[in-house]
């Protein structure tokens, strides 16, 4: 996989600007407010535990990848950086799930 493309020239001049950052801020704020609301009124809204966990996990992952993708502009960086980060993230998720199942089995 040859990757000797042009060097050092920031590629994101045209995409990200102040309006985009502000828009992202609003979206992130709304998601956080939703998380707070779902959690706060889970009883009155009658949300089961499973749905709560699923919804909150999805929302936090969306926020996670929004910040990583756009604020850290991983989306515009070379493929190697993406592989490096995604590999580390998935591997640690795998090991964390492994550890949790092993330790919960232990009681």
């Amino acid at each position: 996989m040859t990757n000797d493309q042009h060097a050092g020239q920031p590629a994101h001049q045209n995409h990200a600007g102040i309006p985009l950052y502000v828009a992202f801020l609003v979206v992130l704020a709304i998601i956080t407010a939703c998380e707070w609301a779902i959690f706060k009124f889970r009883v009155s809204l009658g949300i089961s535990n499973f749905v709560l966990v699923a919804a909150l996990s999805v929302m936090s992952l969306v926020k996670f990848f929004m910040v990583v993708g756009w604020y850290m502009h991983l989306r515009y960086d070379p493929k190697l950086l993406k592989i490096n980060f995604i590999f580390a993230f998935l591997l640690v998720m795998g090991i964390a799930l492994g550890l949790l199942t092993l330790m919960s089995a232990h009681g």
């Binding site: 050092g8 190697l80 980060f85 580390a88």
Partner: peptide, 26 residues
């Protein structure tokens, strides 16, 4: 002039972030 077009220090910071993923994951 680097092979991946990314500055060394930025690449190092991303590697550190990968490592910190494991730190906070644990």
């Amino acid at each position: 002039e680097t092979n991946t077009g990314v500055d060394n220090r930025k690449f190092a910071m991303w590697t550190l972030i990968g490592s910190e993923c494991f730190l906070f994951g644990t």
